[in-house]
Design a protein around this nucleic acid. Sequence first.
DNA 1: CTGGCCTGTTGCATGCTCTGCAACATCCAT
DNA 2: ATGGATGTTGCAGAGCATGCAACAGGCCAG
Lengths: 254, 254
Amino acid sequence: MSQTVDRALSILPLLAEGPADLGQVADRLGVHKSTALRLLRTLHEHGMVYRQSDQRYRLGARLIALAQEAMENLDIREIAHPHLVRLNEQCGHTVHLAVYEEDEVLYIDKVESRYPVRMYSRIGKPVAITVAAVAKLLLADLPAAERRTLADKLDYPMYTSRSTPNAPAFLRELEKVREQGWATDLGGHEESINCVAAPIRGADGRVVAAMSVSAPNVVVTADELLTLLPLVRRTADAISGEYSGKTPVKEVTS
Amino acid sequence: MSQTVDRALSILPLLAEGPADLGQVADRLGVHKSTALRLLRTLHEHGMVYRQSDQRYRLGARLIALAQEAMENLDIREIAHPHLVRLNEQCGHTVHLAVYEEDEVLYIDKVESRYPVRMYSRIGKPVAITVAAVAKLLLADLPAAERRTLADKLDYPMYTSRSTPNAPAFLRELEKVREQGWATDLGGHEESINCVAAPIRGADGRVVAAMSVSAPNVVVTADELLTLLPLVRRTADAISGEYSGKTPVKEVTS
DNA sequence: CTGGCCTGTTGCATGCTCTGCAACATCCAT
DNA sequence: ATGGATGTTGCAGAGCATGCAACAGGCCAG
């Protein structure tokens, strides 16, 4: 809607791929160098980009700090965290918390496995949306029409032979997940890693977040992991209860 | 430099304080509601802000994802991480890695203490710049003029009775840190927590990052923690060596 | 040393694009 | 129903971003 801002913001994902110099930015934006320079300057003043010693630009520190504050403002996270920790203490595996927002699913919290083998994932990282158990739960709760639109828009990378191959298969899976009220990912993202996930619901019954327990085959088999399902669901329900019960009003001392 | 972008970006820190509605945003920007609306719409299209169910805006998921990528692009982090883990295995305490950028110091990596008592800090969180040991190291390396300018600009919150009280004291402390090549924070941020920190230097000898070991009084006394100094310095030097040695050129497959 | 080439920077005139206004829409509480 | 919130749209005017061209500075090769 606003051309200038639109262009400026387009610079950020571009720089996320790696540092770039003025010329490269101008080219990829399709604008004159001087225009790109002024946009970058403005971004710089706000700390959104940083100019490294070789004069190239990369994403700046303020961006990281803002994202940090953004995550701390998500109150599901605060409420859920102690529960996640407790679950981790009980089962020992990696526990994740994720939310859906505008065609993306993001991990917003994580408690590491106490086993030496850890999986690669990071808070803030977008989830493999077509295969992750938490993603299935979050998407399964969308209205059917929206689900279909989104499913068509997605790519279906074959991380492994058990990855969701295409939109129809994905929609069928979502329907199943929707009915059973929980989800799994059995080697769909990484061959040797399995997950069980359960939904966290708000007062109105809508899914506001999802949590999962993940473990590699070498630690527990998929079947053994599935025995944890009741525990995971109980934890998720406990969080749901607390989230719905407490006043969702946040007092911010500004 | 660019008014429109400037205004749009000003919205982000504003929303970081907490969700706000259109009117509040317009007021605090000093613009007409319709203007604020269009800016917010543009931010929304880029996923930088999110409109929650009560129509208020808050920071969006793309911001978090971008920050995530930004951190992954910092190569000091990749190089340092295994060293930090090893140090943590040796001493058991919380290990932090931080960088300075444009008047801010940020934690960019952390390995948690293996003791049950943990300290509150998060990756991406800005550091208490006037007291943290890592901050002192990073600032002590700036040119004297810049140091003075910055010191004047800062606030000096008295977190504890041992916090740095004002600019002159801070500059004196920086001078000392600069000469000795390491730094401590003995209860300057939280009464019962002490840190020892050492600098990580690039090929040109400039400090590019700083790392610290932190532990609460209840686990080890300040004196005991200080005995770890040689180990911390050795680790920092090892990282420095690897960072300088390797080709700093980053190949990006675009 | 000197010339060419590359990248980043500045001043300026043009006109596109952003702005504020006012009217409208919508919702809630009175 | 009626008033007053809040969010939204169309429009005309002008403020501001744009691209151009000229300049500055670094780097390499000759």
